[in-house]
Design a protein around this nucleic acid. Structure first.
Length: 925
RNA sequence: UGGCUCGUAGCUCAGCGGGAGAGCACCACCUUGACAUGGUGGGGGUCGCUGGUUCAAUCCCAGUCGAGCCAACCA
C-alpha cells in the first residue's frame, strides 16, 4: 500500500510573478505539513540545531528590526534543516513588564474617561482584578506579532510556542530565584537605585538612558566655621542640582588640591538649614572642574553615595518616591522637586549664598520606559550579587566556548562585564513574576520558597498571616532564562538534552548587556553549560539615508506594507543581502523593488523551462533519475552544460561559506550574480541554440537545465522560501521527503541542500566560455557604439591567429551568429590587409581579429570615434604594463608567473594597437 | 575621556596587496517566442587627506580630518 503523501494543491504557474497570489497559501501548506516541527530526539547520526527567537514583547508590532532578525534566523534554520539537521526554531513572546502594564493602564484610563468622565487607575481595580485585565489583554492582542511573523515566512516550530509568564516558565523563574537566594546570590538591601517617579518603580542601570540636557550650573557659598561655630571663611561649591543641597552630608575636595588643604577636616555650615557638615578629601573630585569643591549628597547621587561610604557619611534622603521633599527637607517639606529648586534658589539668593550661575550641558538619566528624569534614591530592593556569576561568563567568551560575530563585540561585552555592578531586580509593578518571598505577620520572618507556603515555616502561623512581597522581577530576569526555560528547565527534559546548548543566538547589539550577558550568566550558573555557542549580532535597520526610523520623523517603513506591495521574499532578499557585518542596514524601497525583479527573473526562467519542456516533449527523466544521470555523465556534456555545472559548484561553495560564516550578503550576492548574470543571461540564451540542434544535445541540455534550475531553487530557498517552493512544485520529477513525524511530504523545504563538489570545477569549459563571451561582447559592443539597430543583421569576417581559434569559431559559429544577430561569419586568409571599408576588432582572448564590412552599415565618423576611443584605452593599458616591466626590481622580485603574464599582456596590447592604428589610418585616408 | 565602526561612481554598498565592481539613478537603441519586474551598449571614480612599509597600496602600518555608535564619576 502506497504511503500517503502530503502535498499542496496543484496550481497553474501564474503568467507573471505575483507573490500575493501564493505566499499565504504556501505558508499554510508548510504549517499544516508538519515540516516546521523539530523532534525531541535526533535520528541516528543527526545533529540538532536550535535557535531561540529573541522573544518580542507581547505588546509589540512587527517592525523592520524584527523583520531583519527573523529573516536571518529563518535563513539559518531553513538551511540547516535542508542539510539534514534536527532544526528547532523556538518561537515565543515576552511579558515585558512595564511596557505591557502601561499599555493596559492607558487603555483603562481611556475607558474610564469615555464611560465615567474620569480615568480608571490600576489602584481602582486592585491588584488581582488589574492582573486579570492584563491577561485578558494578552489573550486578545498578544498573538499579533506572531501572526505577523508568519507573513515573513518564518518556519518556527509553533507547536512549542512559549510565553515568559506561562506556567512552566513561572516554575523556572521561581526555581532560579530561590536557588540564587539559597546560594546567597540574591539579597535584599537598602541601596541607591534609579527611581522612575512617573512609573513609580525602581529601574536597573541599563534602563536609564543618559541624555544630554541644557541646564544651569550654580555656584553656592558654604561658610566654613571654627570649633566655636564662628564663620571664618567660605568655600564655593558648583552644582547643577541645588535642591539636593538639603541632603548634603559633606563637601569634598581633591586631596592634592593645595588651595583647599587647610579646609580638610574642618566643618562647613549648610546654607538654609544651618547644619554643620565636614569637608572631606576624595579622589573623585576633579580639581579643574567647577570650583574644585563638590557637595556630597549620598542619598541622591550614585557617586556621592560611594564617597559617602568611603567617609562613613550619614545618608539623608530628602526626596520621596512621590517626587516631593521629605520631612528631612525642613521648611521645604511637601514641595515638588522642581518647585523646591526654584524656592531654594530664591532663598539662597536672598541670603547672599548664591554667587553666580551659568549655562551648562550635562547628562541626565532618562527612563527608557516613561521618558521622565530618573531620580537616584535610597530604597530597599532585591539585588543579584553579580561578581561570581560574571566570572565564568567572562571566561566562556575568553576561552572561545562562546564566540561573537562580528568578533569586535566581544570587546564591548568584556568591558561591561569587567565593570559590572549588582543588578537591581525588583520592580514596583504588578505585571510580572511576583517575588517568591513571604513575610509572616506573626513572627516577622521572611520565607523564600518555590511553592506558595501553606503556613509560616518558622512560627507555623497560617497562610492568612503570610503576605507575599509585592514587587515583581525585572523582565530581563526571566528572559535571562529563555534558552533553558523554553526547553523545560528545571525539569531534565529530552528537549533540553537534545537542543541545549543551542547553536546560535541571533540578536541586536543593543541588548548585549540586557539579555545576552544575562543569559550567559544564568545559563552557566544553572546548567554548567553555555546557553549558545555563537552570538550573531546584526546591524540596526535605518532608513535609506541612515536615519533612525521613528514615528516622529515619519520615515518608518512597515514590513507588512512592504510584504503586501513587494512580497515577503523580496523583503527577505533585501535584508539578507544588506545584512553585512556590524553596521547599519539602510533600507530603501528601490532596493526591494530590485529584488522583487530578481524573483520575477527566477519565475520567468522556470516558465522558460516549462515552455521548452512542453515543446520538446521529453516526458521522462533519465533512467535511474536525473541526479545520478548528471553525476555519472557530466564529463561528457557539451561545453555550455559543463560550464554551467562548474559555475553552479562555485556558487554552492560561496552560498555555504556565507551561511556558515554569518556573511549572508556573500550567499545572497553570489546567488544573484549566478542566477541572473550567468544562468539567465548566458546559459538560457545558449540553450535556445542547443534546443535547435539534434535530439541528443537538446535532451542533454533540457535535463541539465532542469537539474540546475532545481539546484538554484534549493539554494535560494532559505532566502526566498515562498517563490522557490511555488516554482519547485511545478517542476517535473520532484521527490518527496520525510518530515520529523515520518510522513512523506512533497516540499522543497526538506530537499537536500547541496555540498560543493570540487571535482565538478571545469577549468577548460570556463575558459572556452569566457572566450566565447568575449567574442560575442566585442561584436555587440561594435553594434552598440556604432548605434546599429539591434534588428539589423550584418556580416562579420574573421582571421584566426592559429588553428585552435579557427576550430573555436567553427564550433561556436551558430552561437555567435545567434547571440550577435550576425548574418554570416566568414574566414579570411591570414595576412590579408584590411581595407578602409572594414572595421577592425582585434581580440587577445580568444586570439582573433574580427573584420566587419562597413558599407551601408556605419557612419564612418562613428567608426572613427570608436577606433580612437579603443586606441586610447589600449594605449593606456600598454603604457601601464610597460612601465611595470621597465622596472628591474619588478622583474627581479615579483613572482615569475606574474612577470610572464605581464609580458603576454604587453605583446597582446601591442598587436591590438597596431591593428587599430592601421584601421584608423585607412579610414582617414 | 576612553572603546568601536565607517569615509570607494549622483545614491546605497561589495571588494581589501598586482591597475577598481554591483544595484538603483542617468544616456542611446530595442516590445526578438522566459522575463519591459526585460534586453544590448554606454557615460560616470586622483577608492577622505598626509606620510611609511613593499618591486607593487583602494587594500597593510602610523598620523590626520570628517560621520556615527557605545561606555563612562566631571558635580
Amino acid at each position: 500500500m502506497a504511503k500517503k503523501v502530503i502535498a499542496p494543491k496543484k496550481r497553474e504557474l501564474g503568467k507573471s510573478y505575483d507573490p500575493s497570489l501564493f505566499e499565504n497559501e504556501v505558508y499554510q501548506f508548510w504549517e499544516s505539513s508538519g515540516c516546521f516541527e523539530a523532534s525531541d530526539t535526533n535520528k541516528k547520526g543527526q545533529q540538532s540545531f536550535c535557535i531561540m527567537i529573541p522573544p518580542p514583547n507581547v505588546t509589540g508590532a512587527l517592525h523592520m528590526g524584527h523583520a531583519l532578525t527573523n529573516t536571518i534566523q529563518d535563513i539559518l534554520i531553513r538551511w540547516r534543516r535542508m542539510k539534514g539537521d534536527n532544526a528547532l526554531w523556538m518561537p515565543g513572546t515576552d511579558h515585558a513588564g512595564i511596557a505591557t502594564q502601561m499599555v493596559v493602564e492607558r487603555e483603562l484610563a481611556k475607558k474610564g474617561v469615555e464611560e465615567k468622565g474620569q480615568p480608571i487607575t490600576r489602584y481602582d481595580l486592585g491588584r488581582k482584578a488589574f492582573l486579570e485585565k492584563v491577561w485578558e489583554w494578552k489573550r486578545d492582542h498578544g498573538n499579533k506579532i506572531t501572526h505577523q511573523l508568519k507573513k515573513m515566512g518564518s518556519s518556527f516550530d509553533w507547536s512549542r510556542e512559549r510565553f515568559t509568564m506561562d506556567e512552566g516558565f513561572t516554575q523556572a523563574v521561581r526555581e532560579a530565584f530561590v536557588r540564587l537566594y539559597e546560594e546567597g546570590l540574591i539579597y535584599r538591601g537598602e541601596k541607591i537605585i534609579n527611581w522612575d517617579v512617573k512609573a513609580q518603580t525602581a529601574l536597573s542601570d541599563l534602563e536609564v538612558v543618559p541624555t544630554e540636557r541644557k541646564s544651569t550650573i550654580w555656584d553656592i557659598q558654604y561658610a566654613v566655621v571654627d570649633d566655636e561655630g564662628n564663620e571664618v571663611d567660605f568655600l564655593t561649591v558648583a552644582t547643577t542640582r541645588p535642591e539636593t543641597l538639603l541632603g548634603d552630608t559633606a563637601v569634598a575636595v581633591d586631596p592634592e588640591d593645595e588651595r583647599y588643604q587647610a579646609f580638610i577636616g574642618k566643618k562647613v555650615k549648610l546654607p538654609l538649614l544651618g547644619k554643620l557638615i565636614p569637608v572631606v578629601a576624595d579622589d573623585y573630585v576633579e580639581r579643574d572642574f567647577g570650583t574644585g569643591v563638590v557637595k556630597i549628597t549620598p542619598a541622591h547621587d550614585f557617586n556621592d553615595f560611594e564617597v559617602g561610604l568611603r567617609h562613613q557619611l550619614p545618608i539623608v534622603s530628602v526626596m520621596g518616591k512621590d517626587g516631593k521633599i521629605t520631612a528631612a527637607g525642613g521648611p521645604y517639606v511637601g514641595l515638588d522637586f522642581k518647585v523646591a529648586r526654584e524656592r531654594i534658589l530664591q532663598d539662597l539668593k536672598e541670603s547672599g549664598a548664591l554667587l553666580r550661575s551659568k549655562e551648562h550641558k550635562n547628562m541626565v538619566g532618562i527612563s527608557q520606559r516613561s521618558d521622565t528624569v530618573v531620580e537616584p534614591m535610597i530604597s530597599k530592593q532585591w539585588f543579584v550579587k553579580i561578581d561570581s556569576l560574571a566570572k565564568p561568563a567572562i571566561e566562556a567568551v575568553e576561552t572561545g566556548k562562546i564566540e561573537f560575530r562580528p568578533k569586535t563585540w566581544e570587546k564591548t561585552y568584556f568591558e561591561w562585564m569587567y565593570n559590572i555592578r549588582d543588578w537591581c531586580i525588583s520592580r514596583q509593578l504588578w505585571w510580572g513574576h511576583q517575588i517568591p518571598a513571604w513575610y509572616c505577620g506573626r513572627c516577622q520572618e521572611m520565607t523564600v520558597a518555590r511553592k506558595d507556603p501553606e503556613e509560616c515555616p518558622v512560627c507555623k502561623a497560617p497562610t492568612s498571616e503570610m503576605k507575599q512581597d509585592e514587587d515583581v522581577l525585572d523582565t530581563w530576569f526571566s528572559s535571562g532564562l529563555w534558552p533553558m526555560g523554553t526547553l523545560g528547565w528545571p525539569e531534565k527534559t529530552q528537549a533540553l538534552k537534545t537542543f541545549y546548548p543551542t547553536a546560535i543566538l541571533e540578536t541586536g547589539f543593543d541588548i548585549i548587556f540586557f539579555w545576552v550577558a544575562r543569559m550567559i550568566m544564568m545559563g552557566l550558573h544553572f546548567t554548567g553549560e553555555v546557553p549558545f555557542k555563537k552570538v550573531y549580532l546584526h546591524a540596526m535597520v535605518r532608513d535609506e539615508h541612515g536615519k533612525k526610523m521613528s514615528k516622529s520623523k515619519g520615515n518608518v517603513i512597515d514590513p507588512l506594507t512592504v510584504v503586501s506591495e513587494y512580497g515577503a521574499d523580496a523583503l527577505r532578499f533585501t535584508l539578507a543581502i544588506m545584512a553585512g557585518q556590524g553596521r547599519d542596514v539602510k533600507l530603501s524601497l528601490d532596493r526591494v523593488a530590485g529584488y522583487r525583479a530578481f524573483c520575477n527573473k527566477v519565475w520567468n526562467a522556470t516558465k522558460y523551462f516549462h515552455l521548452k519542456w512542453k515543446e520538446l516533449g521529453f516526458d521522462q527523466e533519465p533512467k535511474g533519475g536525473l541526479d545520478s544521470w548528471v553525476h555519472s555523465n557530466r564529463t561528457n556534456f557539451s561545453v555550455t552544460n559543463r560550464w554551467i555545472l562548474s559555475r553552479l559548484q562555485d556558487t554552492i561553495e560561496k552560498v555555504n561559506r556565507g551561511l556558515s560564516d554569518f556573511e549572508l550578503n556573500l550567499s545572497s550576492q553570489s546567488l544573484y550574480d549566478f542566477v541572473w548574470g550567468e544562468f539567465c543571461d548566458w546559459y538560457l540564451e545558449f540553450s535556445k541554440i542547443s534546443f535547435q540542434k539534434e535530439e541528443q544535445e537538446a535532451k542533454e541540455t533540457l535535463w541539465v537545465l532542469r537539474y540546475v534550475l532545481e539546484q538554484v531553487l534549493i539554494l535560494l530557498h532559505p532566502i526566498v522560501p515562498h517563490v522557490t517552493e511555488e516554482l519547485w512544485q511545478s517542476l517535473p520529477w520532484i521527490k518527496c521527503a520525510e518530515n520529523t513525524k515520518g510522513q512523506e511530504v512533497m516540499t522543497l523545504m526538506l530537499q537536500q541542500f547541496p555540498e560543493h563538489q570540487g571535482t565538478w570545477k571545469d577549468a577548460e569549459a570556463e575558459k572556452t566560455m569566457s572566450s566565447l563571451k568575449s567574442a560575442v561582447e566585442a561584436i555587440r559592443a561594435f553594434r552598440g557604439e556604432n548605434r546599429i539597430s539591434p534588428k539589423k543583421e550584418f556580416q562579420v569576417n574573421f582571421i584566426p591567429s592559429n588553428s585552435a581559434t579557427q576550430d573555436f569559431i567553427k564550433l561556436y559559429e551558430k552561437d555567435i551568429l545567434t547571440l550577435c544577430r550576425v548574418s554570416s561569419l566568414n574566414q579570411l586568409e591570414e595576412g590579408v590587409e584590411a581595407t578602409s571599408e572594414e572595421a577592425v576588432i582585434p581580440l587577445s582572448q580568444p586570439a582573433i581579429e574580427f573584420r566587419i564590412p562597413l558599407k551601408g552599415l556605419v557612419d564612418l565618423d562613428e567608426e572613427s570615434k570608436r577606433l580612437k576611443k579603443e586606441i586610447e584605452k589600449v594605449t593606456g593599458d600598454l603604457k601601464h604594463v610597460q612601465k611595470k616591466l621597465s622596472k628591474e626590481s619588478f622583474i627581479a622580485k615579483a613572482p615569475a608567473e606574474l612577470v610572464a603574464r605581464e609580458k603576454e599582456k604587453e605583446k597582446a596590447f601591442m598587436s591590438q594597437l597596431k591593428e587599430l592604428e592601421g584601421a584608423l589610418g585607412r579610414l582617414s585616408q
